[in-house]
Amino acid sequence: MREVPPPARFAVLLPLRLHPPRPAHADRSSGASLFTLRTGLALLALLLASVAVAQVQARDLSVGVVELLIKWTPLLAKGFGFNLLISALAMALGTAAGLLLGFARISLLAPVRGTSWIVVQFFRNSPWLVLLFFVMFLMPFELHFGGVTVPFPDWIKATLGLALPIMANFAEIVRGAVQSIPTAQWEAARSLAFSRRQTLWQIILPQCVKRMLPPWMNWYAILTMATTLASIVGVSEVMTITGRITAAEARTDLLIPIYSYVLLWFFLYCYPIALWTKRLETRYAER
């Protein structure tokens, strides 16, 4: 008998194993190194250092930078809460619309497939800020339904504007996930008399959720950071408020600490998401 060949070279001859078992600490390798706790702590130290330097420089002035940051924290927190609200709503909208659009992308009807392809390409490849401007200036500030006037505030418009790229990107995630399920499953379901809709909802999609979750969370983190774009179109979110604070204080030494402070908030919110995403990716990949 011949020797058993090393599995790496003739993997195709072995029983199907989509993902070879990973060595311990696989998530520490290459690309993952950005996400270590050490890098996070280093960033934190950098931010604290900038505050400390400003504090020392401010010694000849009446109020220190730390006191100023504390004084404005409640207002900043309100602004940041607004960013989170916008991100959550935009994500919900974008996910719902993206799911539909993703289905359209795998439709059996060529015109639906074609139209959705155009929509996806358009919104995926447009700068977010440009989309935001479009929505801000195209949409009215209030809607009239018969005699009733419903206000349509800026932040809702911004939410819609940010939901558009999420929709297109999530549609691609849905399409990719559905297509990543082996086609044999479709054939098997068909032979068991499942309709296409039943196959999709009861067999394919439940398996897709796991595959879609990490990239979906990734997009959520990106979206959260992108909500600061809304400051450019006049929404009173955290960056707008930071600008107002620097105007109210007129202290040049406050600039770097306060922007670092805001950055820290985003970091503390998005970094755990990144870690969690990484962990889910690793866990799902091992199955």
Partner: peptide, 25 residues
């Protein structure tokens, strides 16, 4: 699967809104 249509409807609603705005002004 009817997303192509619903999107068109959405766009139509958006433009209708625009016209209402113009008319309202």
């Amino acid at each position: 699967m009817h997303n192509g249509k619903s999107l068109q409807r959405k766009l139509a609603a958006m433009f209708a809104g625009l016209f209402m705005l113009a008319a309202g002004a």
